[in-house]
């Protein structure tokens, strides 16, 4: 579904990604793990069209992503729950969700079902539907960020560090929901520092170090790999 070939991205002189290649097949959940500054967020932002690529190719559903703007990529089916959640602070929970329906022309017609589905997945959001975004707790904001990404009915869901800044119990709760989203058959690419949680939910994974893919394999293989155990699992 998503194929990235030899992707190089730079901010000025600083190269963030050096010839990264990865693939996400339909129905898969793929984890991209690595330390802070490895280039994980850069990769997701580039897929969503926020960064220019220096070289390489990105394909989604067999077609090049290059000519598509960020907005067009959402319409094509790529949704993202970004790093730091980026909830709209002055919009209510419901407005945060409604604003992300893939086209505002569609509004008023078919978003009721999508809203019900998100509330079904995150009942806490339903209780707080009238509350402003900034007033939510970190865990609730993360759930809202994921729910908001689902509102555009994506084919591919990009999650950027959903566990960041959350207490362990809340991080597990969030990943429990990611697991449920996976069960619906949605394709997921999750970027994460918390290797244990990410590999528990993923089929496959890639390890990114200073802008290069250094290891790839099934979730089991990665969990057993010496390199991952030493660097990311602390064992």
């Amino acid at each position: 579904m998503l194929r990235i070939e030899d992707l190089t991205v730079a901010y000025g002189d600083i190269v963030a990604l050096h010839g990264v290649s990865l693939e996400v097949a339909a129905g898969e959940t793929v984890a991209l793990i690595g330390a802070n500054g490895a280039g994980k967020t850069t990769l997701l932002q580039t897929v969503s069209g926020l960064n220019k690529l220096r070289s390489g190719r990105m394909e989604f559903g067999g077609a090049s992503l290059a000519p598509l703007s960020s907005a067009d990529r959402v319409r094509a089916g790529i949704a993202q729950a970004p790093e730091g959640r980026r909830i709209f602070p002055g919009l209510s929970v419901e407005e945060n969700l409604v604003v992300a329906t893939s086209s505002w022309r569609r509004l008023g017609k078919s978003y009721a079902d999508d809203l019900a589905q998100v509330f079904d997945l995150f009942p806490r959001l339903k209780e707080r539907r009238r509350q402003l975004g900034w007033s939510l707790s970190g865990g609730e904001q993360q759930m809202l960020a994921i729910g908001r990404a689902l509102m555009s009915r994506p084919k591919l869901l990009l999650l950027d560090e959903p566990s960041l800044g959350l207490a362990p119990r809340l991080a597990e709760e969030v990943y429990d929901r990611v697991g449920r989203i996976r069960e619906t058959g949605l394709t997921i690419l999750v970027v994460e520092q918390n290797t244990v949680l990410a590999l528990a939910v993923a089929n496959r994974g890639y390890v990114l170090e200073t802008g290069r893919v250094v290891l790839a394999g099934s979730a089991d293989e990665l969990r057993r790999s010496e390199r991952v155990r030493e660097a990311y699992l602390g064992r």
């Binding site: 926020l50 990529r73 959402v74 319409r75 970004p82 602070p89 919009l91 908001r148």
Partner: peptide, 24 residues
Amino acid sequence: TAIGIAMRAVAQDVKAARLMGLRV
């Protein structure tokens, strides 16, 4: 209205608005 809520979203976080598919 949808356009008004989208305007408020853009005013609050342009980058997030782009990621949500809004025509900023």
